[in-house]
Computed example of a mutant assay.
Amino acid sequence: MDLTATLVALAVAVALCGLAIVLDRRPYVPGRIWRFPSRLVMAVSLLAVLALAAHLLSLLTGRPFSGRTGF
């Protein structure tokens, strides 16, 4: 992935996380059967944001992100 694709994917993941937060804060309406699984979408998008931020950091610095172990 190049820098442009990483930034676009990061923006989409942040927007999806924001949408999931807005949908999660809606009040519960009794009698509605189906609810959107916003917390699951929020968790997956947060994982994507963390992974894309690490990838962006490695693209900007020029060094691969190795974590604490150094591998």
Results as ranks from 00 to 15, higher is better:
residue 44 V to S: 09
residue 64 P to K: 00
residue 28 Y to R: 02
residue 8 V to Q: 07
residue 39 R to W: 15
residue 31 G to L: 07
residue 29 V to I: 14
residue 65 F to L: 12
residue 24 D to W: 13
residue 9 A to E: 11
residue 40 L to T: 12
residue 49 V to N: 06
residue 29 V to K: 11
residue 45 S to W: 11
residue 48 A to D: 11
residue 51 A to C: 10
residue 21 I to Q: 07
residue 30 P to H: 08
residue 12 V to M: 09
residue 57 L to P: 00
residue 44 V to Q: 07
residue 68 R to G: 06
residue 5 A to E: 14
residue 43 A to R: 08
residue 11 A to E: 11
residue 25 R to C: 15
residue 60 L to P: 05
residue 37 P to Y: 13
residue 54 A to M: 12
residue 55 H to T: 10
residue 11 A to M: 04
residue 7 L to G: 00
residue 17 C to V: 08
residue 22 V to W: 15
residue 42 M to Y: 15
residue 45 S to E: 13
residue 36 F to H: 10
residue 69 T to P: 02
residue 38 S to R: 04
residue 43 A to E: 11
residue 23 L to F: 15
residue 13 A to N: 02
residue 7 L to K: 06
residue 20 A to K: 02
residue 34 W to P: 02
residue 38 S to D: 12
residue 8 V to A: 10
residue 20 A to N: 09
residue 64 P to M: 01
residue 21 I to E: 11
residue 11 A to V: 03
residue 56 L to H: 01
residue 18 G to N: 06
residue 66 S to V: 15
residue 58 S to C: 02
residue 54 A to L: 13
residue 14 V to R: 08
residue 4 T to H: 06
residue 6 T to K: 00
residue 61 T to I: 03
residue 67 G to M: 02
residue 45 S to K: 06
residue 53 A to I: 01
residue 23 L to G: 14
residue 59 L to A: 04
residue 62 G to S: 02
residue 32 R to Y: 12
residue 40 L to Y: 13
residue 14 V to Q: 08
residue 47 L to C: 08
residue 38 S to A: 14
residue 10 L to I: 01
residue 62 G to W: 08
residue 19 L to W: 10
residue 27 P to H: 04
residue 5 A to I: 02
residue 71 F to D: 03
residue 6 T to D: 00
residue 59 L to T: 01
residue 40 L to A: 12
residue 16 L to R: 04
residue 17 C to F: 15
residue 57 L to G: 11
residue 14 V to P: 00
residue 46 L to N: 12
residue 29 V to D: 10
residue 8 V to R: 06
residue 6 T to Y: 02
residue 1 M to D: 11
residue 56 L to D: 01
residue 31 G to H: 09
residue 21 I to V: 13
residue 37 P to L: 10
residue 58 S to A: 15
residue 23 L to A: 15
residue 61 T to A: 03
residue 49 V to R: 04
residue 13 A to G: 03
residue 65 F to I: 03
residue 56 L to R: 00
residue 26 R to C: 13
residue 65 F to A: 12
residue 11 A to Y: 07
residue 37 P to A: 07
residue 68 R to E: 03
residue 1 M to W: 08
residue 54 A to C: 12
residue 28 Y to T: 03
residue 33 I to R: 10
residue 21 I to A: 12
residue 1 M to F: 15
residue 7 L to Y: 07
residue 55 H to S: 09
residue 52 L to F: 10
residue 33 I to Y: 12
residue 28 Y to E: 03
residue 68 R to T: 02
residue 66 S to P: 04
residue 60 L to H: 06
residue 16 L to F: 05
residue 15 A to G: 05
residue 9 A to D: 10
residue 38 S to M: 10
residue 4 T to R: 05
residue 41 V to Q: 08
residue 36 F to S: 05
residue 13 A to K: 00
residue 22 V to A: 14
residue 25 R to P: 08
residue 25 R to H: 15
residue 39 R to T: 14
residue 19 L to Y: 09
residue 40 L to W: 11
residue 11 A to W: 05
residue 8 V to I: 11
residue 53 A to G: 05
residue 8 V to G: 01
residue 23 L to R: 15
residue 10 L to G: 00
